[in-house]
Write a protein that binds this DNA or RNA. Structure first.
Lengths: 252, 252
DNA sequence: CACGGTGTTGCCCATAAGGCAACAAGCGAA
DNA sequence: TTCGCTTGTTGCCTTATGGGCAACACCGTG
């Protein structure tokens, strides 16, 4: 809880009431009249009327002339978009990265989709001495990594030319890559087993907004000796859970 | 201008100040400190501090502990999404439909993309006695209408089976339809010249959100005798202008 | 260490805001 | 058409609130 909120700071009651009015309008599926808002907020109707007039003038609330009722105003959308544009995905995701690293015992990465590939922008390293090292700024190899397969599943493109075989397990046939990408899209997560590097296993899940646009990719990776079939299977649910929690920035 | 705002209603100055603080944070590209907000709003720093404390407690503002500065809070995103979910596209678009109908002298329609086609949900009829009649709920024929071509350009699918030739000008070869759809995507608007009906010409432009997802389609249509090559060309810019103005609901 | 700026909070006082009452308007039922 | 009820607004009064001053703690820089 923020320190500011816990202090004995004096609050502005009128602002509290105004926000309570906004909250009630947000909770309601339909427009509300002054008296109904007064009932739900336990604020006198004349006070509510004046609060609404002020909020309406500033665009946070809209008065519907036909019905005399009120609804949330478009200025809130503008303010919400402004709030969104300042969010640092890393800040929001970081607690989830820590939690997932703790749960799985492996290195957890956060990538963002770029133009040609997804790029690692944050990670929480495994506590183990033997760990899969992540590096910031490192692009993924789309066809050979779990992160890359999620990237492809959301419209990312493979580069032209032959696909490099990093290990014997690397999928280099474009048709088989496409099938792998289809699998990723269908089940909502990707895996790579010794495809980018011998002995390196990984899982990845998309972080999406309300329109299913890719905003980030959450990955878990570890050495095959520890992060094998069983451990990978166990990591899927928490991975999806964390990715969904992060996605809730956009979906509410 | 809303009647409520024009009355001699008494406003709540504290709420006005609080919103002024939100506005300043929205305008700024970076986090702001208490004193900076005080300077920009001409409100005493101690008042700003107390307003911020209240807004922070309600989540409309977030205090960044590392820097001591403030930014817009995630609750605004929730409120913005709630506001958005109650918006009726028709209400927002209607003034633009009227304006466009006035500018072009033709019938203007608003459609929303459905599962299999786009459906007319509002229109403003031309003032002319000779006009292209629109009907609410009428689905578009994707391959033969301007509205439909925009729908296809944003991922809509053609139905299976042969494409019906409504006139001699209807494009029924799937490859040519695809080319037409590509043109639509590239230039940002579609046209249909006597393809759905002899003597009926139309233009259409997409209404999109911040992620380029299709939220609606704005169309102009008229009889070829009046809405011919020259008039259509003249209607493109105002059509795009109106579609963009409506799109700003989502993009700010 | 000194200085300047930031951010918060105690305190005082003027006024803003809450709420009561009155009023106008609208709606539904008789 | 009339009546009763509810809604929404506004005049007005009272008082509690909130604005702002001053003081303080903290921080960064020279």
């Amino acid at each position: 809880m923020a320190q500011v909120e816990e202090s004995v700071a004096r609050h502005v009651a009128s602002v509290d009431r105004a926000v309570a009015v906004l909250d009630v309008l947000a909770q309601s599926q339909s427009d509300l009249g002054t008296n109904e808002i007064a009932r739900r907020t336990q604020i006198n109707a004349s006070s509510v009327s004046r609060l609404l007039a002020t909020l309406a003038r500033r665009g946070l609330v809209a008065h519907v002339a036909e019905t005399g009722r009120y609804r949330l105003g478009l200025r809130l959308l503008e303010l919400g978009n402004a709030a969104l544009s300042r969010i640092d995905l890393r800040d929001v995701a970081r607690p989830h990265l820590h939690e997932l690293a703790e749960l799985t015992g492996e290195t957890v990465t956060l990538s963002v989709p770029g133009e040609l590939e997804a790029v690692t922008m944050d990670f929480v390293a495994s506590d183990s001495f033997v760990q899969s090292v992540a590096r910031l700024g490192r692009p993924s190899v789309a066809h050979a990594t779990a992160i890359g397969k999620v990237f492809l599943a959301f419209g990312g493109k493979l580069p032209d030319g032959p696909l490099v075989a990093y290990t014997e397990r690397t999928i280099t046939h474009r048709k088989k890559v496409a099938e792998e990408v289809d699998s990723t899209a269908r089940r909502g997560w990707a895996q790579a087993v010794g495809e980018r590097e011998i002995g390196l296993n990984a899982l990845a899940a998309p972080i999406i907004d309300g329109q299913s646009a890719l905003k980030g990719i959450l990955g878990v990776q570890g050495p095959a000796g520890r992060f094998g079939r069983q451990a990978m299977r166990s990591a899927i649910a928490p991975l999806l859970s964390s990715a969904n929690a992060i996605s809730r920035i956009w979906t509410g």
